[in-house]
């Protein structure tokens, strides 16, 4: 992998910034260059919150990505705003718990995950962000799932440590949801 990037978007409070941070930590632990660039401003309260994470083998030039290689969307406004901007042939991970519309990008690989439901089965609906992250990580191969799991452990420490098992379980469930897509993509690349 030379370089890749993902735009993670949702409502404030849906944990996109945290998911992006865990991804950035995981890639960093694998020795890669990373950048984590959040949207900031009034939309931090209630509106959309999004973050762009770049992962690359060599130093990252522009952290500002206008045509992301991958998009992870938690809500409909984010889908409508960002799906048209995804790079041709890119990857879109959609949270179908809240988004009931198709991205209308025939050229892209689309992974649909009922993230809240899957997270609920794993232990807590609040971990929907990690279900989405799992699906993205599996579908893109950006980092090893084990790297992310280690960073989830590092993220929830002290009194928050009790949240680790449910979040890792949610992440793994997301990985399972995204794995099929990754295998298909790999086959296409081989061909």
């Amino acid at each position: 992998m030379e370089s890749t990037n993902v735009l993670m978007a949702g409502f404030g409070g849906q944990g996109m910034l945290l998911a992006g941070k865990v991804l950035a930590h995981a890639a960093m632990a694998e020795g890669k260059e990373v950048s984590w660039l959040p949207s900031y401003g009034p939309e931090m309260r209630g509106g959309t919150a999004n973050v762009t994470v770049c992962v690359a083998a060599r130093p990252i030039a522009s952290p500002l990505i206008t045509t992301p290689q991958a998009l992870m969307v938690m809500n409909l406004p984010s889908l409508e705003k960002f799906a048209p901007k995804v790079m041709e042939g890119g990857l879109i991970v959609v949270n179908t718990s809240l988004v009931h519309r198709d991205p209308k990008r025939e050229d892209c690989t689309v992974v649909k995950v009922d993230a809240r439901h899957v997270a609920g089965l794993a232990g807590t609906e609040r971990a929907a962000n990690f279900v989405m992250l799992g699906a993205y990580v599996a579908a893109s191969g950006v980092v090893a799932p084990e790297s992310v799991e280690r960073e989830i452990e590092n993220e929830f420490t002290g009194r928050k440590a009790k949240h680790v098992p449910a979040n890792i379980a949610a992440f793994r469930a997301g990985v399972d949801a995204g794995r099929d897509v990754q295998e298909t993509a790999a086959q296409e690349q081989d061909a």
């Binding site: 941070k21 950035a24 960093m28 260059e33 990373v34 950048s35 984590w36 660039l37 959040p38 900031y40 990252i60 952290p63 500002l64």
Partner: peptide, 10 residues
Amino acid sequence: DGMIGQMMEP
């Protein structure tokens, strides 16, 4: 600028 202030990097 605000981007460097708000961005996380290693």
